[in-house]
């Protein structure tokens, strides 16, 4: 038991990371180049922490508020950003993250400034986190099966074609921002209630990079993508002392290599390969192969 016990904090970190990665994946999947997940997470986190410590709300209500706040922020942020082009979306959302961090530093009476908020009572354990990850995964899986997911895919692959087919880019990108905000707000809240203390540095540039890294490594389309990404980038370095020491460099190098040679990410590439293999097996000998149709 004690053997497992020492891995509980690591497991919690991994589950939270998967949650944030889901939030990042939703927007990227819809062709939105947002890095706002860090900002949403900070908002959810501070929201839950302030409500629990200062107003002594029940953690459940605080969590609901964190989700709601995250979703609302996502929705509002989408209004001006849903029609901007990729790079502009990236810069604007980065500015948003910086504003959130600057405000948490500045509004010291409420947020505790640079020291952050400490002594948050721990009310969220590994079980709750696991349930939250499963629920999120289920929702993302449903999205994938639905018209919403098809619209996301179309926008991601070719915005002009999507629009010509009647897909409102504004509507679906707003939806993506909203879902992303809700998920990040929720996991931000969970993090606050799981780790005793939060500070602005938790959600800084490094957070933005890590979350983006999970998706790049794992993949943008499948629900498995973020899980694989988190596994590769957080679990592998834990396996050996040597790798832990060089972890940031490994992260950077992995990001370059995977973007260059497996642009779909590990999980998505694997899924695509499996599908190709199934297809070629399904074709009878005399039938038409996929790549050279008659």
């Amino acid at each position: 038991m004690s053997f497992l016990g020492q891995y509980i904090p690591l497991l919690d970190t991994v589950l939270l990371a998967v949650g944030f990665a889901f939030s990042q994946q939703v927007v990227l999947r819809a062709g939105v180049f947002s890095v706002a997940t860090a900002g949403f997470a900070a908002i959810g986190s501070y929201c839950a922490a302030i409500l629990v410590t200062r107003l002594e709300w029940h953690p459940l209500f605080a969590m609901a508020a964190a989700c709601l706040f995250g979703a609302l922020t996502g929705f509002l942020l989408a209004q001006p950003l849903a029609r901007l082009r990729g790079i502009y979306q990236a810069i604007a959302t980065l500015a948003f993250v910086q504003i959130v961090i600057a405000v948490t530093l500045f509004a010291e009476p409420i947020t505790g400034g640079g020291l952050g908020i400490n002594n948050i009572p721990k009310s969220v354990g590994t079980g709750t986190l696991a349930v939250a990850v499963l629920v999120t995964a289920y929702i993302l899986h449903s999205v994938k099966q639905s018209g919403v997911g098809r619209a996301f895919d179309a926008i991601h692959q070719d915005e002009t074609v999507a629009a010509v087919l009647g897909i409102s880019i504004r509507k679906y990108q707003t939806l993506a921002f909203l879902i992303s905000g809700c998920i990040a707000g929720a996991f931000g809240g969970l993090q606050a209630l799981n780790t005793y203390s939060i500070a602005p540095t938790t959600f800084s540039f490094a957070f933005v990079i890590m979350v983006l890294g999970y998706i790049v490594v794992g993949g943008r389309r499948s629900v498995l993508g973020p899980v694989v990404g988190v596994a590769v980038l957080t679990l592998l370095p834990e396996l050996s002392r040597f790798m832990a020491e060089w972890r940031p460099i490994l992260t950077g190098a992995t990001m370059i290599l995977i973007s260059t040679y497996l642009p779909l990410g590990l999980a998505d590439t694997l899924i695509a390969r499996l599908r190709m293999r199934r297809l070629s097996h399904a074709q009878p000998e005399g039938g038409h192969s996929v790549r050279t149709p008659s």
Binding site: V143, D153, I167, L175
Partner: peptide, 16 residues
Amino acid sequence: IGFHRHERSSVVAGLL
């Protein structure tokens, strides 16, 4: 995806 403009099921139904 060509059917998009005729799809009727709601966003919430899709999410859940």
